[in-house]
Amino acid sequence: MDALKSAGRALIRSPSLAKQSWGGGGRHRKLPENWTDTRETLLEGMLFSLKYLGMTLVEQPKGEELSAAAIKRIVATAKASGKKLQKVTLKVSPRGIILTDNLTNQLIENVSIYRISYCTADKMHDKVFAYIAQSQHNQSLECHAFLCTKRKMAQAVTLTVAQAFKVAFEFWQVSKEEKEKRDKASQEGGDVLGARQDCTPPLKSLVATGNLLDLEETAKAPLSTVSANTTNMDEVPRPQALSGSSVVWELDDGLDEAFSRLAQSRTNPQVLDTGLTAQDMHYAQCLSPVDWDKPDSSGTEQDDLFSF
């Protein structure tokens, strides 16, 4: 819950932080000083300027060897085509990944977070970031790969997607708890209302004896509580940590079903599988986004697919 609360507080303090972009060759504004600060901008989305290598189908939802083989196929196909790589912007948030063309600003792909089953910074092609997700059109699994400016960037994108998945799962947990509370309150309110109706004398007997209905007592009954809980029953509950912020979080049926399955089948359902080692994760978390744009010590960066 700490990640969720800190993310909400950060967004309320400075929503404009989320509009910064990394990996864009110096076009961005001043960047936060450390990885923790940038992680807090996830709610509205972190932007990464990358190059799209392509996509291939895979048979399993996750796995280092599986993704490595898929990336190898994608890279080989991209090299064989001889075409310049498409420059894209990857927007990562707890909602998922939005992929747009840098030149036309046209939407290429919009992947809900619950469809993503794996992401990684490839070991062999260490400047490549990739994720595996279920197609929104059918049940097939797709591996999408992107060329980053350097290994640090690939690791940073991988960690960002993993963190977005974690925050999304926490949102789901909060929403589920809130819905259970509202359902319980609604049920209790309905029981109270039913009890009051059972003990209320029939209207005919009131008229016969000349008694008047006590409207004041009726007004004191917990009807307002019942209506408050039943009027918006169809509205999706939102985490309290975000009250007053500009973010509107809505959970669709697909996300609810997917996270429910994860909660039942996995020990740590909030953790998205990645190909990063503990050492890689520690190294990337210690980086400032400013470091992502620094040239690798191995030599001059080449803006070309064939540089790796």
Rank of each mutant, 00 (worst) to 15 (best):
Ala221Ser: 06
Leu159Thr: 08
Thr56Phe: 05
Gly189Glu: 03
Gly24Cys: 11
Ser135Cys: 11
Gly254Tyr: 06
Ser297Lys: 00
Arg151Ala: 02
Cys119Val: 09
Lys166Tyr: 02
Ser298Leu: 01
Ser243Phe: 04
Gly8Cys: 03
Gln285Phe: 06
Glu65Tyr: 15
Ala78Phe: 06
Thr225Asp: 05
Leu43Arg: 15
Asp291Asn: 10
Leu159Ala: 09
Ser297Thr: 00
Leu255Pro: 03
Trp249His: 06
Met124Leu: 12
Ser21Tyr: 06
Thr41Met: 14
Leu287Cys: 01
Pro202Phe: 00
Gly25His: 09
Leu223Asp: 08
Lys87Val: 09
Asp214Met: 05
Val207His: 03
Asn102Thr: 11
Thr120Met: 12
Asn232Thr: 12
Glu301Asn: 06
Ala121Leu: 12
Phe169Cys: 01
Glu250Asn: 04
Asp126Ala: 11
Glu235Cys: 07
Gly275Met: 03
Gln173Pro: 01
Val247Cys: 00
Leu17Ser: 14
His137Ala: 08
Pro94Glu: 02
Asp304Cys: 05
Ser243Val: 09
Val207Asn: 05
Lys220Gln: 11
His125Ser: 03
Tyr52Ala: 08
Thr277Gly: 00
Pro32Tyr: 10
Leu107Gly: 04
Lys184Asp: 04
Leu251Lys: 01
Ile108Gly: 03
Lys123Cys: 11
Ser175Ile: 00
Gln106Trp: 01
Arg29Ile: 00
Glu178Asp: 00
Leu255Phe: 05
Arg13Thr: 13
Gly82Gln: 11
Met233Val: 11
Thr149Tyr: 04
Pro201Gly: 04
Val248Arg: 07
Leu242Asp: 02
Thr230Trp: 04
Gln264Tyr: 02
Val226Lys: 07
Thr77Trp: 11
Ser297His: 13
Leu287Glu: 07
Arg196Asn: 06
Ala145Cys: 14
Gln155Met: 10
Phe259Leu: 02
Leu193Lys: 02
Lys204Cys: 09
Tyr283Asn: 09
Lys123Tyr: 12
Ile108Cys: 03
Thr36Glu: 10
Leu85Pro: 11
Lys123Trp: 12
Ala154Lys: 07
Ser245Gln: 08
Arg266Val: 00
Pro289Glu: 07
Leu42Gly: 04
Gly24Asn: 00
Glu257Arg: 04
Leu17Pro: 12
Ala185Thr: 11
Lys220Ile: 07
Asp191Gln: 09
Ala10Glu: 14
Ala258Met: 14
Asp256Met: 09
Gly275Asp: 09
Lys91His: 01
Ile116Thr: 06
Asp293Gln: 06
Arg29Lys: 04
Lys79Pro: 05
Arg266Ile: 09
Ile108Asp: 13
Gln136Pro: 15
Ser307Arg: 09
Lys181Phe: 11
Phe129Leu: 10
Gln155Phe: 13
Thr38Asp: 10
Thr218Pro: 05
Leu287His: 00
Ala76Lys: 02
Arg196Gly: 02
Lys5Pro: 06
Val128Met: 15
Ala145Asn: 05
Trp22Arg: 03
Lys176Val: 04
Leu90His: 13
Asp2Cys: 06
Asp126His: 04
Lys123Met: 14
Ser14Glu: 10
Ala156Arg: 15
Asn268Gly: 02
Arg266Asp: 00
Ser140Asn: 15
Ser135Gly: 10
Trp22Lys: 09
Asn110Gln: 14
Ser260Ile: 02
Val226Trp: 04
Gly25Ala: 03
Phe171Trp: 00
Ser67Asp: 02
Cys286His: 06
Lys181Pro: 15
Glu142Thr: 04
Gln285Leu: 11
His144Cys: 11
Ser224Leu: 07
Arg182Cys: 10
Gln139Trp: 13
Glu188Met: 05
Gly244Lys: 12
Asn211Phe: 03
Trp35Cys: 14
Leu287Arg: 01
Lys294Met: 00
Glu188Gly: 06
Val192Asp: 12
Ser16Tyr: 13
Pro237Phe: 05
Glu188Ala: 09
Val192Leu: 02
Lys79Ala: 10
Gly54Lys: 09
Ala195Trp: 05
Ile132Tyr: 10
Arg151Lys: 04
Leu215Glu: 06
Lys5Ala: 08
Gln197Glu: 05
Lys30Pro: 13
Asp37Ala: 12
Val192His: 09
Arg9Glu: 03
Ala208Phe: 03
Lys181Asp: 08
Asp234Val: 12
Glu257Ser: 00
Ile98Ser: 00
Leu262Gly: 02
Ser288Gly: 05
Gly26Asp: 12
Thr89Arg: 10
Leu99Ile: 14
Gln155Thr: 05
Leu107Gln: 12
Gly254Ala: 14
Ala69Arg: 13
Gly24Lys: 07
Gln86Val: 10
Leu107Ile: 14
Asp183Ser: 05
Leu262Asp: 01
Asp253Phe: 06
Ala7Ser: 12
Val157Ala: 00
Ile97Glu: 01
Glu65Arg: 10
Phe306Arg: 00
Val157Ser: 12
Lys181Asn: 14
Ile71His: 08
Leu305Arg: 14
Thr200Val: 04
Lys184Ala: 03
Ser243Cys: 08
Lys83Thr: 09
Phe129Cys: 01
Lys123Arg: 10
Val290Cys: 06
Thr300Gly: 00
Glu40Asp: 15
Gly254Phe: 09
Gly63Trp: 08
Phe259Pro: 05
Lys150Cys: 03
Leu276Gly: 03
Pro202Cys: 01
Asp37Leu: 12
Asp252Ser: 13
Lys87Asn: 08
Val128Gly: 14
Val58Cys: 10
Cys286Asn: 05
Lys220Val: 10
Gln285His: 04
Glu235Pro: 05
Lys150Val: 10
Ser112Trp: 14
